[in-house]
Design a protein around this nucleic acid. Structure first.
Length: 546
RNA sequence: GCGCCCGUAGCUCAGUGGAUCAGAGCAGCAGACUUCGGAUCUGCCGGUCGGGGGUUCGAAUCCCUCCGGGCGCGCCA
């Protein structure tokens, strides 16, 4: 919204002059450079073969604008055009924010488009571990961001309940089950799942079945497997629930086998000459697709490797007609995603619709040094434990607050801090503080929703706050388009800071005139909307009291 | 060895198509309202943007190279 008007003015001027360029508008770093600026003249310089400042002059001459909104146009430096805004503009922005109300910040830019976001996708072999938290937070915030700009979003969870890992799970449970029955049964230390939860599952089996499963059979192992899957999934979903994360689709890898997609995918790859047999296994010729080496897609045992179902799955996702297909993966998937996409592309699918958000690993920091999260019992530390320790809000914010491609350092001391140094509390405090002002206003009998004259907001702190609030829709759009929740996190801090400064310098309820009180209350309300909506995008609550 | 990501202040990180670009938070130091929540605000200190080359009128940003860190490179997922 902030740059919209200027963009329009600039765009019209470009068109009038017959110049082809994006009307790019940016926020200058320094106040002295005005309220908005465009480097477009410099971008055109090479293309037109004219000095940038000359082009800037032409543009300024060609611009038509409302003199009550824009005070001055200046050419600066090598050829920037700086825009300086008048209070009338701020009043206009504030009025428009208020008019939009609770939906402020959201847009309809991508209305009618559909997106699929796949995230978490952990196999049901145990509880989520702390590292999963980053995937959860990023994926869910990305989904929320896409919704905020108009996409209809499907949240999807892909899981494998058929492979080797599930067999290991079944065997682990069975071993514990036998041990609980008092049998001297060996536990496979190399492949088995050693967590205490396995014993828990086994204990439930003892309660349900007594010693009826003692005989080692496929049938009994299948019962262990099913029990384990159900138990683990319940655990995972419970954890996600605590983070306010809900998937729409749980896609079962196993279904790809039963419905023939696996066989069909192999056939299609074969038709394109990309499949051959060697050493008793079936290979895909990924070297023909420009990759380093060929890979096995069906082992000599007849079992497919994970690649094949991955390829089939992506074909399915792409054939659903979504405009955008987002995969949120940890950095350890880097190798496979290339292979999968190359194969899918070779099968004729438009993989430009696929965006992969590859996040780097997480390091936990305590007393300034990396350390391994653990519990006193020596038992594995889970994502659930982290939520227990820090609260869902802190967990979601911390995992989403950095760009995905950075190796996230999760500072446990800062996260544990229940004070202003913790960025989550800083944001929530600003929100609670506004709520408190409104509670007081109500007690004083002030008509909070009454008419407000925004032209009365002329204090520098007021203008600064409006300027920040005005950026919000741009920020949401940019964050959504770059699939980067951290942009929202950064912005919210700026917004909260601008509010606190305003709060400190301008009394709201104690303002000299009633009209000013109402105008400032309206500004506070707009701030509250921005904070609430922004926090929502990150999956963090906006408490009224703390 | 090969592929991808990262290297910016003591620490954690921004820097959106090269340009008005040396920035924020934390830590440290010094201050602030008799009043709407001090979980706040204001100021100061602090950096050869990993090193070196190159392109350019101009490079944290683009190219090359070296160094350092992470993750991969399975008939595991």
């Amino acid at each position: 919204m902030f740059f919209e008007y200027i963009r329009t003015v600039l765009g019209n001027a470009l068109e009038r002059l017959g110049y082809r360029a994006e009307p790019h508008v940016e926020l200058p770093r320094h106040e002295s450079h005005g309220d908005a600026a465009t480097p477009v003249a410099m971008q055109l310089a090479k293309q037109l073969g004219k000095p940038p400042r000359t082009i800037a002059e032409e543009l300024i001459a060609a611009m038509e604008y409302d003199p009550s909104m824009i005070a001055a146009l200046e050419i600066a430096g090598p050829g920037f055009i700086n825009f300086r805004l008048l209070p009338g503009y701020y009043a206009d922005v504030a009025r428009r924010i208020r008019a939009v109300g609770d939906r402020y910040g959201f847009s309809e830019r991508y209305i009618g488009k559909r997106a699929n976001v796949e995230y978490v996708s952990a196999n049901p072999t145990g509880p989520l571990h702390p590292g999963h938290g980053r995937n959860v937070a990023l994926g869910d915030s990305i989904a929320r961001l896409l919704e905020a700009v108009g996409y209809r979003v499907t949240r999807e969870y892909y899981f494998n309940n058929a492979g080797r890992q599930m067999q290991n799970l079944a065997r682990s449970i069975y071993a514990r089950y036998r041990q609980l029955l008092g049998d001297d049964y060996p536990f496979d230390d190399e492949n088995g799942y050693r967590g205490q939860y396995i014993v828990e599952i086994a204990r439930e089996l003892v309660e349900e079945y007594g010693d009826q499963l003692r005989e080692e059979s496929e049938e009994h192992l299948a019962i262990c497997r099913a029990k384990g899957e159900a138990w683990c999934f319940a655990s995972i979903r419970r954890t996600l629930e605590r983070l306010d994360v809900h998937h729409d689709v749980y896609f079962n890898e196993y279904s790809l086998y039963t419905d023939g997609h696996i066989a069909r995918t192999v056939e299609q790859l074969r038709q394109r000459g990309l499949v051959y047999e060697k050493d008793g296994a079936t290979w895909i010729a990924t070297t023909k697709l420009g990759l380093e080496q060929d890979r096995v897609i069906i082992k000599s045992t007849g079992e497919p490797t994970y690649r094949l179902p991955d390829i089939a799955y992506h074909c399915i996702k792409l054939s659903r007609g979504d405009d955008l297909v987002v995969d949120v993966f940890g950095a350890d998937h880097i190798a496979t995603i290339q292979e999968v996409l190359a194969a899918v592309r070779a099968l004729g699918y438009d993989t430009t619709r696929v965006k992969v958000v590859l996040h780097q690993m997480v390091t936990f920091l305590k007393d300034g040094v990396p350390y391994k999260l653990s519990k006193r019992s020596g038992e594995q530390y889970t994502l659930d434990d982290l939520i227990e320790e820090l609260g869902a809000d802190v967990v979601r914010y911390f995992f989403a607050m950095r760009a995905a491609e950075t190796q996230l350092v999760f500072d446990m001391d800062l996260a544990r801090e229940q004070s202003e140094t913790n960025p989550v509390f800083y944001l929530q405090y600003a929100h609670a503080r506004i709520c408190s002002v409104f509670a007081n206003a109500e007690q004083l009998g002030i008509d909070v929703s009454g008419h407000a004259d925004f032209h009365l907001l002329e204090h520098p702190a007021e203008c600064a706050l409006i300027k920040v609030l005005a950026q919000f829709p741009d920020v949401v759009l940019r964050a959504a388009e770059s699939l980067a929740p951290y942009i929202v996190a950064d912005y919210l801090h700026t917004a909260a800071e601008a509010f606190h400064t305003f709060y400190h310098e301008c009394r709201i309820l104690g303002a000299p005139r009633d009209e000013i009180v109402r105008a400032r209350l309206a500004l506070a309300q707009a701030t509250r909307t921005v904070l609430r909506n922004g926090l929502h995008l990150l999956g963090v609550s906006a408490p009224e009291r703390m």
